[in-house]
Amino acid sequence: MPLLISALDLFRIGLGPSSSHTVGPMRIAARFLLTLDESHEFDQIARVSIALQGSLAFTGEGHGTPDACLMGLIGFQPETVDPEEAHAAAAEVRATHRIALLGRREIAFDPRTDLVLDFDHVPDLHPNGMVLTAFDDEGAAIARQEYFSTGGGFFSSRHQLEQPAPDDQVTHGPPVAHPFGSGAQLLEVCAASGLDIAGVMLANEAARRPEEETLAGLDAIAEAMNQCIDAGLEREGLLPGALKVRRRARAIHQNLISRPQDNQAETLMDWLNLYAMAVNEENASGGRVVTAPTNGAAGIIPSLLRQYCSEGRKAVPGKARRYLLTAAGIGLLYKQRASISGAEMGCQGEVGVACSMA
């Protein structure tokens, strides 16, 4: 029986510019330390090293991966972190060569030597590889773990990827009311149960938490998407990076609202493209975005949410919940049976997944 990914896992609130390169590595770094804390080895740590491999090495600097690793070691969580606070904390580590692991154990840490872009080793199981090692005062390795950031903020250990589930099924989490492992099975479940895709997904979420918690989580995702659009429409200036790309969403927005509004397809597409651009610019600046299902495609689902499921700047709960649940039902098929990782299938693959979800 398939055990399905939760909709609240597929949509994750985090930091840009890449769910694979920032959200995933941040979660991996924190998980590595939390595992040592659970095994009562945390207090022995005197040094930590991280080697970024594959795509995380070759594009990591431009995608903010090193700073994301520092944020994770400090204990920041993508879902709750304040972007300005997190970026300031990472800058302080680079300036002082000191880091407080999980916010409580301070050790020496020099990003120039302890956080390595390993261009020589190409990961064999997934393009986004990370090797983390913790050492004691004598320089002996306490623990070493290899992880892979698999897209959308998800990650797996080497052990997990070396033992894949049969037929791309998820092997963790509680059994759900209406299991399905393919699009054909999803249609069969809908026909047999009399539920639409959103209804099937909501019933399955009940295996994990009370319904009111699921609905509150969906509302928080919708609110974060609309807030991201608002932030992108308000900000001006240059995006981070050497290319000196100027933000365009605010100027385009001012132009659009000054024009007579009509129901022409061209006008509709102008607004949809604007909303997506606003999210993409927030993502590129390292701001708060929702992986939908990745940061690389983060503008598409919020754009349609704003146009069809919102009144003004606020989502209409009934419409937004149905939209997000249905999109998640489609998205988890890609996650479990194919991929949502740009490093595996290209950035247009991420965008294609988001378009079909929307």
Rank of each mutant, 00 (worst) to 15 (best):
E236S: 15
G349C: 06
A203F: 04
E311H: 13
L195H: 09
G237K: 14
Y334S: 11
V316Q: 14
A203C: 11
F148L: 05
R247T: 08
S18C: 15
A91M: 09
L325R: 06
M26V: 01
N280D: 15
R98G: 04
R246C: 10
I257V: 15
V245N: 12
F135T: 01
D262V: 04
D110E: 14
L268G: 11
N283F: 04
F180I: 11
A315P: 08
E85K: 12
G352R: 13
L3A: 09
P78A: 08
G241W: 04
N283Q: 12
R12A: 07
Q336W: 05
A354T: 04
S19I: 09
V176F: 09
L115W: 03
M357D: 05
G72K: 04
T214W: 06
P83N: 10
G346V: 03
V245W: 09
M130D: 00
D114A: 12
Q53D: 06
E344T: 14
S39V: 10
E84P: 00
T171V: 13
L272T: 05
I257E: 06
N280P: 01
T171A: 13
D219F: 08
V279E: 00
S149H: 03
L161H: 06
V200G: 04
V279W: 00
Q185N: 03
F148R: 05
H21Y: 03
L73C: 00
A320P: 05
D43V: 14
A191L: 13
A141I: 06
A328R: 02
P174C: 07
S156T: 02
F42I: 08
V189H: 02
S19Q: 07
G342H: 10
L215R: 12
P123C: 12
G152I: 00
F135N: 05
M26N: 02
L256H: 10
L56V: 11
D37Y: 10
G342L: 08
P260N: 10
G173M: 04
L33S: 00
L4R: 10
M71W: 11
S55G: 05
R47M: 12
E212R: 15
D9T: 11
A140H: 14
F148E: 00
A100H: 12
R250I: 01
L3S: 09
R247S: 12
G329Y: 01
P66T: 05
Q185M: 02
S20A: 15
D124Q: 13
A276K: 13
R98H: 12
S149K: 02
L10R: 06
G54T: 04
G349D: 00
T326V: 09
D230L: 15
P25N: 06
H172N: 14
E92P: 00
G296H: 05
L52W: 06
T150W: 02
H87K: 14
